[in-house]
Design a protein around this nucleic acid. Sequence first.
DNA 1: TAGTGGTCTAGACCACTAG
DNA 2: TAGTGGTCTAGACCACTAC
Lengths: 245, 245
Amino acid sequence: MNKPTDIGEAPRAQPLYAQVKALMMQRLIAGQWRPGDMLPSEFQLADEFGVSQGTVRKALDELTADNVLVRRQGRGTFVAEHDDHRALFHFFHLVGPDGQRRLPESQLISVRKGLAGQIEADRLGIVRGAPVIRIRRLRCLDGRPAIAETIAVPQKLFPDLADIREVPNTLYDLYERRYGVTIARAVERLAAVAAEEPDAELLEITPGTPLLEIDRTALALDGKPVEWRVSRCLTATHHYRVELG
Amino acid sequence: MNKPTDIGEAPRAQPLYAQVKALMMQRLIAGQWRPGDMLPSEFQLADEFGVSQGTVRKALDELTADNVLVRRQGRGTFVAEHDDHRALFHFFHLVGPDGQRRLPESQLISVRKGLAGQIEADRLGIVRGAPVIRIRRLRCLDGRPAIAETIAVPQKLFPDLADIREVPNTLYDLYERRYGVTIARAVERLAAVAAEEPDAELLEITPGTPLLEIDRTALALDGKPVEWRVSRCLTATHHYRVELG
DNA sequence: TAGTGGTCTAGACCACTAG
DNA sequence: TAGTGGTCTAGACCACTAC
């Protein structure tokens, strides 16, 4: 059986496995399959979509490569979860002199509601003046102040985030568990800047000290921006590590 | 036929396709297949290794994902070449305000022979005091000085590089064509530093200006380091872009 | 033992490229 | 038209996990 049945009869522009992948992605975005859930087996999915098991496998393999699914032999296929380890490994690139990652401690400075300025609106894909929540925090590496961070998110997506007393170390975990927003990928723009107040005071350095500025836009599963974050980092002892394949 | 014949009879610790991949990688490292060469067809390779075409395909797919091979439907499978475009796309991450990459112009400052210091020796995996070649150059973006670059390579791998009058814009292309050394991947460590002489003069800025320092170790196909490069970049108008999957 | 994903095979047909 | 990679199927067996 080479003709798609359940998927549609129109002459296809995309290969079957890509259509299966897109359908599964839709379910993930819609929240029909949630982080931690186990998916049906390959054969069940194959039946459901009216394709062979090999075709489902190719779709599953790609979603696994995209870090959306996790497959475990003998157990099943699961929707990826943002545990601390994954967040650290995927989204935190500062390493010590030995090249090893360290989980930074976080110290909350403030959480405030506000209205989006032009830059925030551009970065978050919302209209200027829309309600946002801004978070300031200081992160320490090896016990010393290392990162001054400013985070902005649309209030619409995270309604009561501003009321939370204690913000966990890995925010993405909170986004996922409490608001059903999964961070799928991010784009960072790095630059070297001179420290200004109030970052300098927070980091206990003199203004003018060079800092590594990481400007990150984080995107949800559907590709829409959901968080804008600027981290200014001391790189005297730590470095930002990139691997080019 | 499920038992490997040409590949070996010992109880295998690795799947067949991984063994096939490793064998093909060996040939690539040995230079038996050189950049630009066309590989035998999937069926020919399958015959040669004594496996099925599907198994060869899986190995080829992975090598393609690793950017070692390029597959073109209807034409064949080829060993990847480091043309300007690929070098720019893979190894150059500075983008303009619009997010678009620009190919920088290069201005050669000096090419000198020398003996490896401790840091060079560590980075290049050679003994201290081994002959190295050092290159200094200035790179411009949009006509303005933007990057002060220092490059060190082992003289052993690039014998007459020091005699070359004109160094092309994309060095990796030269490494590949002239010396048969293919840069497969690289590791970069980024930090913010204050400009010092002689970089400040080269970049026409005042000492102390924050610069983005990119410390890159480039690795050949066999995984051994072959180039150490430090680029200090003005990031007033340009940014270093990273995509996190 | 039953169920899952992981590997491997064999064969069919399609889409693209070149002569 | 011949040869290549791209897709899809069907079925076998292996390796791992849980009960």
